[in-house]
Amino acid sequence: MRNFEYAQPATASEASRLLADSDDTLALSGGTAAVVLLHLGLLRPSLVVDLGGATEMQGIERPNGGMRVGALTTIRTLETSAAVAVAYPILAEAASQVGSVRVRNAATVGGAVAYGEPQTDVPAALIALGAEVEAQHGDSRRSLPLADFFHGPYETDLAHGEIVSAVSLPAPQARTGGCHAKFTIGSMEHKPVANASAVVTLDADGACLAARVVVGAVGPTPLVAERAASALLGAPIGEANAREAARVAAEDAEPIDDLRGSAWYKRRIVRVLVERAVRRAAERAAA
């Protein structure tokens, strides 16, 4: 690790300005990824801006029945918050599967989103829930669908100096259920071979009214599996259409061969995870 300057501004706008001021700056939230990158020498900033002092980015609000999660909210808070458990249980489920308690205590929602790592769990669940991401540049803020935020591995829509300040979720719908499933080799702390998030809404007769399926770690960004979602619409979710959704999700995945497995294997895992996530989401929606 190289020496660097360190600042902990008190507001998001000041943080953004400091980050924009020079070329080689780095934002720091929980540090679970950033510190590893510094340690490995993959990042060599001259200034590290700790966002932790900008307390305005903390906390969970409930505007209009939806939810606005401040960027500094920890993954552990998502996992344990009663409000999250009631309104968006899939988010608590995804959070509970991140690394270890120690990692979850430090890692933040803002960091998980801004990092842009395709293997990350929480963004997949957030996209399945239809989340929007709030970005702040100096004093100006904008909002865009999280599904459009990721451009490639570790590449996002953020401009230089822009920070993620919050993530917001639409109000939960009736007869809706979700599930986040992941598959990891070795222990939970290890990066997943693949993950899948599904959120489905049923009509009064139990037919699938709306569905969103997202698969992670099998492409440059979390992939919204549109054909998989379409395969579920209009009928109750059972073995046959869940399998079909899983099959097309695996087809549409773009995995690469790496240490966690070959592309063939990852597609197999996507099939297992999508089928499991979709069926469990449907059971939960019906319950």
Binding site: V36, G186, S187, E189, L259
Partner: peptide, 16 residues
């Protein structure tokens, strides 16, 4: 070496 850090080298933990 491809497995050059604990990011790419899984170890057993309590969960296993």
């Amino acid at each position: 070496l491809l497995t050059s850090s604990l990011l790419d080298y899984p170890l057993p933990t309590m969960s296993t």
